[in-house]
Simulated assay, not measured.
Amino acid sequence: MGVMLEDVGKFDGEFLDAVKQSPKNPLKILDLCVAYGFTTKELLKTGADVTADDLSEEHLKHLWETVSEEERTRLQLLPGNAVELEFPAKSVDGIMACRWFNFLTGDKVRKVLEKSYNWLVPSGTLCVTAESIHSACFVNAYAKYVRAKESSAEDE
């Protein structure tokens, strides 16, 4: 479980704008690792049909309880590990993956990117953002990170 920030950054904002302005309506969007669903709610505001994934069923239950009846008609909940999900090829118009790639190892990043490529329609868009240990939300963890990094360098 990571951090859910309730703000729209540059890249996810551009993705949201593209979804909202698309001539194809509604777009089918897969929102991965949504936590309590801030990005999902932003996607629903665009009119998109959204499948929201998270490891925590409790997080998804909270999301469901905090959206309108109309939004629920365009929302599907999908509990599970995003790395292990399976979807039909070319079945989604866009994928939003905000602030969780930084928790993956290289092989899992490649696996998610390959799956995403296969799930997207030919003109589909993948929006990936990741946090840095230098972000304000990690200020208290930075010293621990540096010690672990130095320790692992000594082991090499």
Rank of each mutant, 00 (worst) to 15 (best):
D7N: 08
L104R: 14
F87Q: 12
R147T: 09
P26C: 01
E42M: 14
Y142H: 13
K144I: 10
E156R: 06
N25H: 07
K108C: 10
L32W: 02
D93C: 11
A52T: 00
Y145I: 04
W100A: 03
D17P: 02
A143L: 08
C33G: 03
E42V: 11
E70A: 10
R72D: 05
M4H: 05
I95T: 15
V50G: 08
A35H: 05
L55I: 07
A136N: 10
R147M: 11
F38Y: 15
K20C: 07
I29R: 09
E70P: 09
R99G: 03
F138Y: 08
L30E: 02
F11N: 11
L30N: 06
E114I: 15
K115V: 10
F138S: 05
S123V: 08
T66P: 02
L63E: 00
G106S: 15
I133V: 14
A148M: 12
K144A: 14
V92N: 12
E150L: 12
D107H: 08
T66R: 00
L113K: 14
G9F: 05
V139P: 00
L75P: 05
S68N: 07
G106D: 15
A89N: 11
E14F: 03
E6F: 13
A97W: 00
L32C: 02
A153F: 08
E57Y: 06
Y142M: 13
E84C: 10
I29C: 04
S135L: 10
D7H: 09
L120I: 07
T129E: 09
P79A: 04
D7E: 11
D53A: 14
A82M: 02
A136D: 13
V128T: 07
I95Q: 14
G37M: 02
V128E: 07
L30I: 01
E86L: 12
V8H: 06
C127V: 07
E114R: 13
L60V: 02
T46Y: 01
H62F: 09
K90H: 13
V121M: 06
L104C: 03
E42K: 15
M96V: 11
M96R: 07
K108I: 11
G13F: 05
K24H: 06
G94F: 02
V112T: 13
N118E: 06
F11W: 09
L43H: 14
M1E: 07
F138L: 08
K108E: 15
Q76A: 15
L55V: 04
V19R: 04
D17R: 01
D93N: 13
E86V: 14
L77V: 02
K20M: 12
P26V: 00
L78E: 01
A18Y: 01
T51S: 07
P88C: 11
L120M: 09
G80K: 14
R72Q: 11
E42W: 05
M1S: 04
E84K: 13
D49Q: 14
L5E: 03
K45C: 10
R147V: 07
L60W: 00
A48I: 01
E71A: 13
L126E: 12
N81Q: 11
A130I: 02
L55C: 01
E65Q: 13
S68G: 08
S135W: 05
